[in-house]
Amino acid sequence: MHITILHQHHASPDCPATCRQYSFMEKLARRHKITLVATNAWRILQVTHTYSWVPKGVELKECTVAYANKMGVVMRMLSFVGFAACAFYKLMRLKKPDVLWAVSVPLSVPFVVAQVARLRNVPWVFEVQDLWPCFPIEMGAVRYKWVQRLLYKMEYSLYKSAAHIITLSPDMTAYVVAKGIDPAKVTTVLNGTDIEKAAAINDADVEMIQVNYKLNGKQVVLYAGTYGRANDIPTIMQAVELLAKEPTIVFVLTGTGYYEPQLQELAQRVPNLLLLPPQSRDQVFGLFKLADLSLVTFNDLPVLKSNSPAKFYDSLACGTPVIVTNPGWTKTFVENYSCGWYTPAEQPAALAQTIKQVLGDKPTLKEAGCNGATIARELFDRRELVKDVEAILNNVAKR
């Protein structure tokens, strides 16, 4: 089977990124012909140079289009439009595949694939990684009502056009079905994680990190991810200040994004905040193994209840329990499997209190970590999740 993938935000494990598609392509390329159309935007963010830019056997067609999390609305729109135009040109010139696979976001990616699929009479699969246009609308990036209506109309037409829809969480699936889409056409394939990379980190690796950053005897609270507008970073910053006088608690943050300058300023004022540069895929698992607790925080917006953050899976795979702030499926998950705790978004005092309480109960903390590692091996292994994706692609191609 020949699979062509359109993914604007492709990155290798050398980058500070989730690399879901990289992991999937690595497995699929052993049995199928894979062509990837992507941008070169993440190349400059490579932290290490251990991996090839695309997995062995994957044909890359690259567009030179800039993108960064720090971009404002106008620059992001220009990036999306630029990539859409370049991608359409490249997809129309490629050898006709058996199936097209659109990895959203942004919404312009599935829009381009839908047009190419129609013109070339090829079925396509829509992977919904974030709910657009709900996300930019609720974040205030799309203010005009007529534009909102147009985007929602486009979203629905894309759901109808796709031969199948993959979502990354059960709440996303419920959202799509509530739009009037046949439930049989929608499959949840969790974001997942690279279990083998987590397992490769041993005690000696963790001890080395502790020594390097002078963290021996400290209880580490980790946030590993984007410092973006949607990630409720101000709440973390206020919790750091509230716990600044706790001698054993240290917050370790690694990432980049909008709030980076404010975090750097805070790190100069308080003794309990350690900022690390962005980490490669392999390196970040070392930090999760080191941490006693990790944070998965988002703003108090309805659309964010459904998201499927990589750090949630990475943390549990490393046996590190999590505090989540989404009142959606992640809250239900950590409560059902006793692998974490919930505290409401945008409430720094509640977050600080939960952190202090959890770290003070070491037996429960250890039990939650073990529970998380067990359920991660059962449900989060991308080597197993890719089989579900492959079955979907095969079924669509046969139609």
Rank of each mutant, 00 (worst) to 15 (best):
A198N: 05
Q347A: 14
Y223F: 15
G228Y: 05
D205E: 03
N326K: 02
L295C: 08
A41M: 08
L28T: 01
E241N: 13
Y67E: 12
W42L: 14
V240I: 14
S306M: 13
Y337C: 01
T325F: 01
C339L: 11
P271T: 07
Q21I: 02
K387A: 02
V189T: 04
L290W: 02
L385S: 01
D232K: 00
V189F: 06
G360A: 05
P278S: 04
A184D: 15
D282F: 06
P133K: 08
Q46Y: 03
L316Y: 03
E384N: 12
E246N: 15
Q46D: 11
E390Q: 11
L276G: 03
F80E: 15
T64K: 13
T254L: 12
C134W: 10
S161Y: 05
A376V: 06
T48V: 07
A87Y: 11
F126R: 04
V358P: 13
F24R: 03
H7C: 13
R30C: 06
P13C: 10
K160M: 13
A38H: 05
Q8L: 13
P327I: 10
K362A: 08
M71R: 02
P309A: 10
L150K: 12
Y144C: 05
T364E: 15
V303M: 03
V109E: 05
V58K: 12
F135A: 08
A38L: 02
L304Y: 07
P302V: 11
G369H: 09
A66C: 01
F24A: 02
V116Y: 10
V54D: 01
V177D: 03
Y227M: 15
L253Y: 13
W132S: 01
G140T: 03
I181W: 04
L78E: 09
E367C: 05
L190S: 08
L151A: 03
L45S: 12
F80G: 00
S315W: 09
V37D: 05
A87W: 11
M25Q: 03
L351Q: 04
A85I: 14
R383C: 03
I375G: 07
L119M: 15
D203K: 12
I166P: 01
K70E: 15
F333C: 06
A345G: 12
E26D: 08
R43D: 10
I249G: 06
L6Y: 04
V211P: 00
R382S: 06
V220T: 08
E196S: 14
L243C: 12
C134P: 00
E59P: 02
P302D: 14
Q347F: 02
L274Y: 01
S280V: 03
E335F: 01
L131S: 04
A350V: 14
G217H: 10
K95A: 11
K185E: 12
K95S: 13
